[in-house]
Amino acid sequence: MDFYENIRSGKTEAVEQMLKQDPSLANQKDEKGFPPIVLATYNEQPEVSKVLLGHAADIDAKDVAGNTALMGVCFKGNLEIARLLINRGADVNARNFGGATPLIFAAMFNQLEITHLLLENGADKSMRDVKGNTAYTYAQKAENPKLQELLKP
């Protein structure tokens, strides 16, 4: 099984062994342009994510759309991995190529707990994407009063 398939499948020990043999794998993108940390977090593999970060994976590495691991987690809603990334120093105000931030993704996908976490860790709710929308704009579209209250300007 190849390195990226081991990441997707959560084969922590295999990933660890491959990284020991070739440390450069920690930041080598797959054939579709996805960094290992993005693959691990998007596939909800917290233990593999820890191994990658322990081998100096770039926590803010971007995929082909400019998304970071934290952005993907905010989209998918995995609070455990969101905490891991934030505790390890992920940029809570990173922007993808469309100007979206982790907070915008959390609001867009109605992720109340992750929104709380991001705000507690310095996420800027005034940031706008390329369409001019803030996280609050997306909270309004999600029709979640609690989310709207949190993100109110």
Results as ranks from 00 to 15, higher is better:
48 V>Y: 06
8 R>L: 08
23 P>I: 11
89 G>S: 01
40 A>G: 13
75 F>C: 05
87 N>S: 14
20 K>P: 05
23 P>H: 07
78 N>L: 09
43 N>Y: 15
72 G>E: 02
77 G>C: 11
89 G>K: 00
27 N>G: 07
27 N>Q: 05
88 R>P: 00
58 D>W: 11
14 A>R: 14
2 D>C: 08
32 K>M: 09
20 K>F: 04
11 K>D: 14
71 M>Q: 02
18 M>H: 00
20 K>G: 03
50 K>Q: 04
59 I>F: 05
18 M>V: 06
81 I>G: 01
82 A>I: 05
18 M>P: 02
53 L>R: 00
44 E>V: 15
43 N>K: 13
51 V>W: 05
74 C>W: 02
17 Q>T: 14
82 A>K: 09
56 A>K: 15
53 L>T: 00
51 V>T: 11
50 K>N: 01
7 I>C: 11
69 A>L: 02
16 E>P: 00
34 F>R: 05
11 K>W: 05
17 Q>I: 14
77 G>F: 09
40 A>S: 15
86 I>D: 10
78 N>R: 14
19 L>Y: 02
55 H>P: 01
55 H>Y: 08
50 K>E: 08
13 E>K: 15
34 F>P: 04
6 N>A: 12
43 N>R: 11
11 K>Q: 13
32 K>E: 07
50 K>C: 06
29 K>Q: 09
24 S>T: 13
38 V>T: 10
35 P>S: 12
69 A>H: 08
26 A>V: 04
74 C>S: 08
67 N>D: 07
6 N>T: 03
60 D>P: 07
74 C>K: 03
19 L>E: 01
63 D>G: 01
89 G>D: 00
50 K>V: 01
33 G>T: 07
46 P>G: 06
12 T>I: 12
22 D>W: 13
57 A>C: 09
33 G>C: 05
28 Q>L: 08
59 I>G: 02
62 K>Y: 10
68 T>G: 07
34 F>T: 03
73 V>H: 05
65 A>F: 10
23 P>E: 02
42 Y>M: 04
88 R>F: 00
84 L>C: 07
78 N>M: 13
82 A>D: 11
78 N>V: 09
38 V>Q: 04
80 E>F: 03
50 K>M: 02
85 L>C: 09
79 L>V: 11
25 L>W: 06
89 G>H: 04
27 N>L: 07
77 G>T: 09
41 T>C: 15
31 E>W: 13
88 R>S: 03
78 N>Y: 13
4 Y>Q: 11
26 A>C: 03
27 N>E: 07
68 T>S: 12
90 A>K: 00
31 E>Y: 13
30 D>T: 12
37 I>K: 11
74 C>L: 08
72 G>W: 12
58 D>V: 11
53 L>K: 00
15 V>E: 11
7 I>K: 15
67 N>I: 00
25 L>A: 08
59 I>P: 03
80 E>I: 08
16 E>T: 10
88 R>Y: 01
21 Q>N: 05
49 S>N: 11
79 L>H: 12
41 T>G: 08
17 Q>G: 08
56 A>D: 14
23 P>R: 02
